[in-house]
Amino acid sequence: MIKQYFLNTWSGIWTVLVGMKITFKHLFTPSVTIQYPDVKVELPERSRNRLYVNMDDCIGCDQCARACPVSCIEIETVKSVPGDEVGKTSNGKKKALWVTKFNIDFAKCCCCQLCVFPCPTECIKMTSIYEFSEFERDNLLYNFATLTPAEVDEKKDSYAKLEAEKAAQKAAAAAEPKPVAAPAPEKPKEESSNN
């Protein structure tokens, strides 16, 4: 009994000493921590942090917004009217839509990168900027759209006008007696005879 007691005590002391030796060795290994924010880690090239959208290339296709699992991208587009040049993307695609709204809510974004892969023009990208904390959550709502509110109104107006003109034309066309449309009723007959 008493022997066991001393054996236990001895092995307690001995194994603690073994551990002490390891900690002592670690005293002389270089430190693994860094003095953030004075020193910053270098992030690898694939690091995923805040998104950036290059609006010059964005065609407003909404694919990124649909891929996002938390729905933090909000896009609104207006069709351009003929004669209104939206421009071209850097890989030569012609744009047809005015992106009137492109908001990303970084308070919601989980940096999953699902929005980056489907983009046809590779204009939405992950950057290595990770220091963008804010005191107000509203400040995390980033607006990437380049049009000013006045421009947005203008684009919407001109598109609405175009629509109205088209609708008027259609209405006018419908009101006119249509000689071309006359043979139309024959078609169903043919089909029924086929049956």
Partner: peptide
């Protein structure tokens, strides 16, 4: 102490993941 040593080693693994896919914990 072992807790800290374990985290040093884990950190190395997380860096490998970060190198591969850009995220440290939630990789997708």
């Amino acid at each position: 102490t072992p807790f800290l040593y374990c985290f040093i080693d884990r950190e190395k693994i997380l860096s490998l993941f970060e190198l591969t896919c850009g995220a440290r914990m939630l990789y997708n």
